[in-house]
């Protein structure tokens, strides 16, 4: 038990939380934007895998981590655009398109990996690069704080910045107003000349781009290789975080950190003599419990609301 408390209150645990929360933050911002526009993007998981592999391959062949990142984000955006084309122009069901992208992400990346790296599990034969770590000015001078907040991969800071950017985009710009209007009552938006299709395309492409960042971080920051199914459900946890955060950027961020902490805990506990199978379950159990609490609270709110009306 002492060991347990020691882990949680250690500096390295704080650092680890930020490290594992980064991909969740990116992906959940992708979930948030598409949700606001009324197009649910359940393909975040698949897009992350596609982007992660793209980043590794492009950085290996160009020997530029930056180009790798750009390629990953582009791959994410294009996948988002493809989903938009399928659901908005060809009128497929957006959930089914999402499932398809997830399956392509899971299987297609292994196939592509085998073609490029001649391995079905891991990309270690490719000399791919990672994105740099950054020491923050001023903060890196402060003890303890520095150990938690400084020296992260550059994408960790980009992720935190992206929360602010998404907030501004959704709540402070004309496009954001149109995104919210389209998501809530597309007829109303349509009736005043807002192009519903254009807005949904924008949202899905942005959503794909954020998932692209998340994927790039996985293979070019979190670790330095691509491996089969390396996202292990983070795309879905991000969807859960967005729902639990009530669709607001701040709430979603908090939910991401809760899930991130659970994951960091499961990583740290593996050093103790707790069965790994049990420990690895923690982040997912926390997700399920979190969602259950959230929806029961919401249900009671709705009931109360109805009672007040009646």
């Amino acid at each position: 038990m002492d060991k347990f408390i020691e882990i949680i209150f250690s500096v390295s645990f704080g650092y680890a939380v930020l490290r594992v929360t980064t991909p969740l933050l990116f992906a959940s911002m992708g979930a948030l934007i598409s949700d606001k526009a009324g197009v649910i993007n359940i393909a975040l998981e698949g897009i992350m895998l596609i982007a992660a592999l793209t980043g590794v391959i492009v950085s290996a062949f160009t020997q530029s981590a930056f180009l790798g990142l750009m390629a990953a984000v582009l791959a994410g955006s294009l996948t988002g655009a493809a989903m938009a084309y399928a659901s908005l122009n060809l009128k497929t069901d957006i959930i089914l398109s999402g499932v398809a992208v997830n399956l392509i992400g899971a299987g297609g990346t292994v196939f592509a990996l085998y073609l490029v790296a001649h391995d079905k599990g891991i990309s270690s034969s490719l000399r791919s690069l990672v994105l740099p770590k950054v020491a923050l000015p001023i903060i890196s001078q402060i003890p303890v704080i520095s150990d938690i907040f400084s020296g992260h991969n550059i994408l960790t800071y980009v992720a935190i910045l992206s929360v602010v950017l998404v907030y501004i985009l959704v709540y402070k710009t004309p496009v954001g107003l149109q995104i919210r209007a389209v998501g809530e009552n597309s007829h109303a938006a349509d009736s005043v000349g807002v192009s519903v299709i254009k807005i949904k395309y924008t949202a899905l492409i942005l959503s794909g781009a954020f998932a692209g960042f998340a994927g790039a971080y996985m293979s070019m920051g979190y670790v330095s290789w691509f491996s089969k199914n390396m996202t292990v459900g983070r795309g879905f946890i991000a969807l859960a975080a967005e729902a639990m955060g009530g669709g607001t950027p701040l709430g979603t961020t908090i939910a991401c950190f809760v899930f991130g902490a659970a994951e960091a805990l499961s990583n740290s506990l593996q050093s103790l003599r707790v069965p790994t199978e049990f420990v690895q379950m923690i982040p997912y159990v926390v997700t399920v419990v979190g969602l259950a609490l959230y929806s029961s609270r919401k249900a009671s709110q709705i009931k109360k609301h109805l009672r007040n009306r009646g």
Binding site: P174, L177, Q178, R180, A181, E184, N185, H187, A188, A189, S191, V192, G193, V194
Partner: peptide
């Protein structure tokens, strides 16, 4: 044809913000 969670002003200027 209104968006409930937006303000009156936002609804009025929507499409011509």
């Amino acid at each position: 044809m209104l968006v409930p969670s937006l303000t009156v002003a936002e609804n009025i200027v929507l499409g011509a913000e």
